[in-house]
Nucleic acid binder design. Structure first.
Lengths: 204, 204, 204, 204
DNA sequence: GATGAATGAGCGTTCATTCAT
DNA sequence: GATGAATGAACGCTCATTCAT
């Protein structure tokens, strides 16, 4: 039905507006210090309306996190897919991740703000999803590195742990950039990350 | 006065008992989902008594975090100090960090639990301390790496960023170990971290 | 908008109901010995609702006092205005005051209950208002007495102090009546007050 | 026994010290905003010791009020007794009262601080005593005025109400002086009070 | 469907009083 | 007797969620 289609489109638009505002506010103050009234007011809806889109505050919060994280991994995967060779894929991976952080600094800061707590009770519901997503992402990286092993590009190290290492080198740069205001774009760190991951710190 | 000495010893013992229990509970549930009554009950004190040791819930929480973090860095620095050469110092650094995480898994999980929020309002008071501590630690690592640069052991990469990279490689292993139950001790990852940091992933 | 008008009317009605009940309870027990739960229950609202009308317990208390006091002075001034000559104005002043006390005995007893304390910390916010109101009232009386001086009705005494004297003669009668249950209406004291104020106690 | 006599003397001295400090603190902050710890610290005793002298906070408060009020009435009565004629007695009454207020401004301000509340629950225990004391004092004044009626000095007005009027004329001056800082001593108001009480405001 | 007033459970904190030392 | 640490009941206030309009 055309009517219901438009309705659904509208529904999704409104839902997205709420999520967008919620992201800003949650990023700024953390889960507990944000009230539903605040989100309602910022997104231009009534408190009651919020409950037509989300079961409750927690659902709103976890949905927001969940969808944004999905977006991040989607973007990264997409970028990597379009690269040709192994080195290019690794570089794309780093690049896409750094760009996402750069463009979504506030959101990412949610995961920094003390780097703690909310996954506690509130997040029980998406905790596993986040972990699974992360492991899936690691597996995704692992697959790339495995083909790098096969092709003889990489040293024979455990691919899973290499994936973890690469992932956290990216994190290292991201966290630093988020914590201290820097004029250089985060993406300028790509070369260094790629270099230290591939060659290590030791002189040949 | 002997009497006041004993009193002070007792005071410190009780204070430590509270902190110990609080650590467990906060680690399990996060700041907001823990009540003072819960901590009181777990530590065998009355609610009122808690307030003789700490100004409030926030003070108790931040004190607990702060003192434990100090302990961690102290232990690491100590271990590193006792190592002779550069490679030994780097190895000690990795080792001490991994051991601390291994022996204080619950505490460390505080910083994982969603890796977010608490530094928000609650932690304004120690946020800067945590950041400062981290940067001081990075500087500490940097100093070691600089002497490695001088001695010709390391490639000529920016030492600060190398420090960040090393620090996050350690984190990578710690986070993985904390997130998934593993039978192998975390410390078994030392060799890999050292290896990938020094030689990188690329075949020579 | 009609709708918002009705809403506002309802809001004011409810607010007035709360204030009315609060007045009774505060009058009976004093600020500190009244709980918000008590007021909520007495006025038929939930605890939370109280906070939609007043910022907190203190605000509720001071608002109640403040509005009632305004009402008292308004009534008195109105009555006095409508009197023709000086003697009539003085008589009206006494009369209006006595009637207010008679009709608002519980409220007035708030200012008797030990005649103390609350203006302390709690009332810092309206303390000055009460004092200002009182002094404004004294000035109002003073103006009447001054015209009495001009017209030759009154002896040449300092008008400010005469105003204080008259005000406290009224208080004297009110306090007595509030403290001891009396069958005679308070207003029956008007003649005596007027008499002793105008002629004093001494035989001519 | 001499020993017990000294003990008792010491007991009374300490008790008086506590009451003296308590008076200052209660006068400054009101009953509810003063803690036993505060009184203990100010009077140089331990919290526990306070309970050897007084059954509790309320007892301490009411005792302090009660004894000070007794002192006031004693002083006034004494002064009045030593005056010869009726006019002198009335003048002494006014004088003694004004001097007491002047010399015990902080204490008297207890009864001003909003002129309310504390007689609420806390004071139930001495409320009646205060009222009785006041009425006894009124009777005392009444007796003087009655002899003034008999002697033909005073007009034939109800002596009880005249007593109330006189009492509140004194109050009027006291309250004003307590509320607004004045350079003139309160006792300078004696003449005016006596004048308006005896002659009234009206030109003969 | 949309609204936002109403609800009330739940928590941090205070402080008079007790009692072991 | 003197101490002051320990106790825990009690209260103000918040805010997610509901539901009458």
């Amino acid at each position: 039905m055309v009517r219901s289609e438009r309705k659904e489109r509208e529904f999704n638009t409104r839902r997205a507006e709420i999520l967008e505002q919620a992201e800003k506010i949650f990023a700024a103050k953390g889960f507990h210090d944000v009230t539903m009234a605040e989100i309602a007011s910022a997104s231009g809806f009534s408190i009651g309306s919020l409950y037509q889109f989300f079961k409750g505050k927690e659902h709103l919060y976890t949905t927001m996190i969940s969808e944004k994280i999905d977006l991040m991994y989607d973007k990264i995967n997409q970028e990597v897919q379009s690269a040709k060779d192994i080195t290019g894929k690794i570089a794309s991976l780093i690049d896409a991740h750094l760009h996402f952080v750069e463009n979504n600094a506030d959101f990412c800061r949610i995961f920094l703000r003390g780097e703690n707590e909310a996954l506690s009770k509130i997040m029980t519901s998406i905790r596993q999803k986040l972990i699974n997503d992360y492991y899936q992402h690691l597996s995704f990286i692992e697959k790339i590195l495995k083909s790098g092993l096969k092709s003889g590009l990489l040293r024979s190290l455990p691919p899973r742990e290499m994936a973890g290492a690469l992932s956290h080198l990216i994190r290292a740069a991201s966290v630093d950039w988020l914590l201290v205001p820097s004029k250089e774009p985060l993406s300028s760190k790509r070369a260094f990350i790629l270099d230290i991951f591939l060659h290590g710190a030791k002189k040949a």
